[in-house]
């Protein structure tokens, strides 16, 4: 499973975030290395929602964190506004320079409770970013802006602002997280599994708020989830990841109507209510995802792939084009 090749990259003025050959490795003791993300490349256009989907251990959250340099990737580049005059390569700067561009890319996290400081009041939590940057923007009225974003996410500032996080439900905490990210007017919002810790009856509220905020504040979203149906719902373009590599990338409609990679097809067939475009028999072999310390040679999905051949072990598939905006890294793509 591929990664090799960058044919999926777009050459457009509209690209606001470009990730090239991203590699994330962590030491695992005894001179071993966890290959969490291996050679991942994608880009995001202005106003677009890019969904990244995959199962646990596929490197989607690590990728999300690498976008905000938490921690800095082992190699590869992350560039804001590539090609433009104000192009900033996040992977090439550090210290104050990096800090000063941070407000442009904000993030919301999976655990609504862990992402809010239990000892601070909602007003301070949301106003934090504004206060940090107050020297640069002295004319910003912090309280007014906090009230504005609180109202935008559907919370009443009079009631909510003076409370602490534990007085809110999970869904409300997630709204507060969104408000905190929006307060400093970012361009890109990275959402790392924002609804997976929430009750099903509350998920839709948060997904709808994200859509609303995207329109209202002109955001570009990177949306990470393990849930295909959620990703399908919010995304314009989707990246499917497995064991640190990109399997398939493409326009959401094309990818979900004609899934080309066997792994994407397996995911669609395994959903609680399987998609009708795949056959119910297309399931993964076995329950065990290989260790990222010692990933399989060739295609990383080959150990569980229903279509595996000898070629898959010897050669790593290169990204190939399946449609106008649809790319796949597989030797035998398409429906079986």
């Amino acid at each position: 499973m591929a990664g090799s090749g960058a044919i999926q990259m777009r050459d457009s003025d509209e690209v606001v975030l470009r990730v090239e050959s991203l590699v994330m490795e962590f030491p695992a003791g005894r001179n071993q290395v966890v290959h969490a993300v291996s050679d991942v490349s994608f880009d995001v256009c202005r106003g677009e929602t890019l969904g990244i989907v995959g199962e646990s251990g596929c490197g989607k959250s690590t990728t999300a964190r690498a976008l905000v340099q938490l921690p800095r990737p082992t190699s590869g580049t992350v560039t804001l506004d590539p090609g433009a005059d104000g192009q900033v390569e996040l992977t090439g700067i550090e210290g104050e320079a990096l800090r000063s561009v941070r407000p442009r890319v904000q993030m919301i996290f999976q655990d609504p409770i862990s992402s809010l400081n239990p000892r601070r009041r909602v007003r301070d939590i949301i106003g934090e970013g504004l206060i940090i940057w107050q020297d640069q923007h002295p004319d910003v009225d912090v309280d007014a802006r906090v009230d504005e974003v609180l109202r935008a996410v559907g919370l009443d500032p009079v009631v909510a602002a003076s409370r602490r996080p534990h007085e809110f439900s999970g869904g409300q905490c997630q709204r507060i997280s969104i408000a905190r990210a929006l307060a400093i007017d970012p361009e890109i919002l990275i959402c790392d599994e924002p609804v997976s810790a929430l009750d099903v009856s509350v998920q839709a509220q948060i997904l709808n708020i994200l859509e609303e905020m995207k329109e209202r504040f002109g955001l570009t979203l990177v949306f990470i989830s393990h849930d295909l149906s959620v990703v399908r719902n919010v995304s314009d373009r989707v990246v499917v990841m497995y064991l640190g590599k990109v399997c398939e990338i493409g326009n959401s409609d094309s990818l979900f109507s004609e899934p080309a990679h066997p792994y994407t097809r397996v995911l669609l067939a395994s959903a609680p209510e399987p998609s009708t475009v795949v056959d119910a028999s297309e399931v993964a072999i076995g329950d065990e995802v290989p260790s990222p310390i010692n990933p399989p040679s060739g295609c990383r999905f080959r150990t569980r792939c229903p279509r595996v051949t000898e070629l898959c072990a010897s050669a790593e598939p290169v990204m190939r084009k399946m449609g106008p905006d649809h790319f796949v890294a597989c030797h035998f793509p398409g429906s079986p």
Binding site: S201, A204, L207, N208, D236
Partner: peptide, 24 residues
């Protein structure tokens, strides 16, 4: 409400989900 609020893979992108307002 539960059925309408949960997205499904066969729904088109950006289909509006009918939220269940409030919390349990």
């Amino acid at each position: 409400a539960l059925l309408e609020t949960i997205p499904r893979v066969d729904m088109a992108s950006h289909s509006r989900l009918v939220p269940i307002p409030g919390s349990p």
